[in-house]
Simulated assay, not measured.
Amino acid sequence: MSSLSKTLGVLDLFGPEQLQVDPETIAARMGLSRATVYRYVKDLCEAGLLTRVGAGSYGLGPRIIELDWMMRQYDPILSAGRELMHELADKTGLAVFASVFYDGHIINTYITESHDASHFAFGRGHPLPLFRGAQSKVLVASQKGKRLQKLHEEIARDPSNPYSACSWSEFARMAKKIRKDGYSITHDELNTGHTGIAAPIVSVDEKEVMGSISAVGTTANFRLLRQETVLDMLIDTTRRIAQNIHAQRSIPAA
């Protein structure tokens, strides 16, 4: 592992339950000497990736916000699908989420506002639990072979996950059904009283699942809508986003 990778590895210590770290924690978690820790922290602070937030504690720095802004301008799913997501939200009155899978994590990268002012437990950037919620199920199910088996093992180690007791064969069968159906529908899995429908964004050549789009709202609101109609509109939105991404990638560089 390069020195740069080790330095950036400090950022992996942060999470929803760990918003600040101190040098002692970094040294213990990464097996580093205090001198090395202080060198890494100094470099990260100078780059704006860390900032001092208290007596000997550090939090994520302002450079993270700048990178987030740039990501939202040029992220392929958002640049290709932001308007389509708002179009779907306007037609259904539901909140529409864009979500991605990376390095074993699932996060929402964009959320339109719902008409019923719902408050969601997992907002933009907050990691979702594996295989809980429609968007998480769709993205986990898109993994295959050893990747899917590794995710099953991680779920099995989490007693708070309702699918932790599932055997590998049961889990693989559920994932296969989601892939075959091309969507997932869940009720009350992430937000009590809410229903979600998610479908993957599949590349035009069908070789890559680039992310997912989901429509989420109160179960009461879903009863006022024809679920089949919402599903058709959702799948059409993912198809159009994939086509837009393909068109963007086909434009020759200047």
Results as ranks from 00 to 15, higher is better:
Tyr163Lys: 04
Ala117Lys: 06
Ser142Ala: 14
Val230Leu: 01
Glu113Phe: 11
Thr186Ser: 02
Ile201Lys: 00
Pro127Phe: 00
Gly193Asp: 08
Phe171Ser: 08
Ala220Met: 04
Lys176Trp: 12
Asp205Asn: 15
Arg240His: 10
Asp116Phe: 07
Thr237Asp: 10
Ser214Arg: 06
Gly145Met: 04
Thr219His: 08
Ser114Lys: 07
Asp205Trp: 15
Phe120Asn: 05
Thr218Arg: 15
Ala156Ser: 15
Leu234Lys: 05
His187Met: 04
Pro162Trp: 01
Ala198Trp: 04
Gln143Cys: 13
Gln149Ser: 09
Gly133Phe: 07
Arg239Pro: 09
Tyr163Gly: 03
Gln135Cys: 13
Ser169Gly: 13
Leu234Tyr: 13
Val216Leu: 12
Thr112Asp: 13
Thr237Ile: 06
Gly196Leu: 01
Ile201Gln: 02
Gln227Lys: 13
Ser136Met: 05
Asn221Gly: 09
Gln135Pro: 10
Arg157Ile: 00
Leu231Lys: 01
Thr219Glu: 11
Phe122Met: 00
Leu234Phe: 08
Ile201Leu: 07
Ser160Tyr: 03
Ala172Gln: 13
Leu130Glu: 10
Gly145Glu: 08
Pro129Glu: 02
Arg132Ser: 01
Leu190Met: 10
Gln143Phe: 07
Val202Thr: 14
Val230Ile: 03
Val140Met: 04
Glu170Trp: 11
Trp168Pro: 14
Met233Lys: 14
Asp188Gln: 10
Ser203Pro: 14
Ser114Val: 10
Ile155His: 01
Gln143Asp: 03
Phe222Tyr: 12
Val230Ser: 02
Asp188Lys: 12
Asn191Ala: 08
Thr237Trp: 09
Met174Gln: 11
Arg239Gly: 05
Glu228Pro: 04
Asp205Ser: 08
Asn161Phe: 06
Arg240Tyr: 00
